[in-house]
Simulated scan of single mutants.
Amino acid sequence: MSQVKLSLQNALLTLEQLQQTPSREDGITEEQEDHLRQLGCHLIQHAGILLKLPQVAMATGQILFQRFFYQASLRKFAVRDISMGSVFLAAKVEECPIRFLDLVNVFDHLIKKFHRLPLDPMPAYQQTFYTLKDATVVAEMQILKKLSFNVHVQTPYAIMINYLKVLELIDHPIIPQLAWSYLNDGLRTSIYICYQPPTIACSVIWLAARKENVVLPTSPAWWEVLDAKLEDIENIAGHITSLYHRPLAISTLPLTIEQVEPYLRGEFNKNVNNGSAAAAEGSATTAPHLSSTKSTRVSRFS
């Protein structure tokens, strides 16, 4: 009988899984898939902030969202629904459960905000509430099914803090918060499903130290002492910094299945812009852009 080994490490993707995703096989380009993944993670992060969830729960939700869409196609499952399901499931995993009413109201608010629609509160228990609630329940079950109920997520936040203490950087006025922000931004990339948390923690410290021109020990190399490879550190840093050179107009991205096909044909942007312009007539508000979550740094760093 073969032995089954249990591991507390995160499940990582193979190179084949990373390159041949269900969405790519469904005719969605790499760029389109990347944009939709970022949109979902952006929704989860902002929903978590409004729901006052700890950052670890927001991170878990985004990692579950990313894992799910390496098992399912963005053409068959809505970004909105899987985002809600990821937040709801992550809150349970991290033992900070939330109410359906709060979750649905927050997502309703964010969707209206992203598409520049009037921010009218949703009347209590109208049909929209039940629609979004049902979508969340179905999405949660789909996530569990596609991930084979493996929702264990190890995040690098605590590891990074310990490494900062080892490197005597925990009291630096900028580096700890900057590294924390890089961890948050990296959730919108594939690094959390390609590398283990200790390597990610090393990379954000390396990136923050370079940004602040702080020299780290090289004799012996500090990353070798922490059992990380410089090549991996540089690759992770490259994924994170690439986010800052490609801002997204999030109001032009589809949130529901019905919006995906027009988006893939290049028709959704025009329609949503016309609709939101009519709804916001007389307003000088410009479309929000997604470039970095640094503007919403988490105050829970400790």
Score class of each variant (00 low, 15 high):
L187D: 05
V151L: 13
D171M: 12
K92E: 04
P176A: 14
V56R: 15
A91M: 07
D26I: 04
Q38M: 07
Q71P: 07
E224F: 11
Q259D: 13
T296I: 13
F301N: 00
A179M: 02
L18H: 14
Y130M: 15
R297P: 00
P97I: 13
D108F: 15
Q9T: 11
S295D: 07
S292I: 03
D102S: 14
L110P: 01
E94V: 13
D227T: 07
T285A: 15
L183G: 02
V215D: 04
Y157P: 08
P22V: 10
Q3H: 10
T128W: 01
G266V: 07
M160H: 09
Y163K: 12
F68S: 00
I193W: 01
I205Y: 03
I98E: 04
Q127M: 11
K5C: 10
T252Q: 15
R67S: 06
K133P: 05
A90V: 03
T131Q: 13
S219R: 12
A59Q: 02
L53W: 01
A208G: 04
I161M: 11
Q177F: 06
A228M: 04
F69V: 08
L39C: 00
T21Y: 06
V79T: 14
A228G: 03
S83C: 03
Q126N: 12
Q38K: 08
L164Y: 07
P176C: 12
I161L: 09
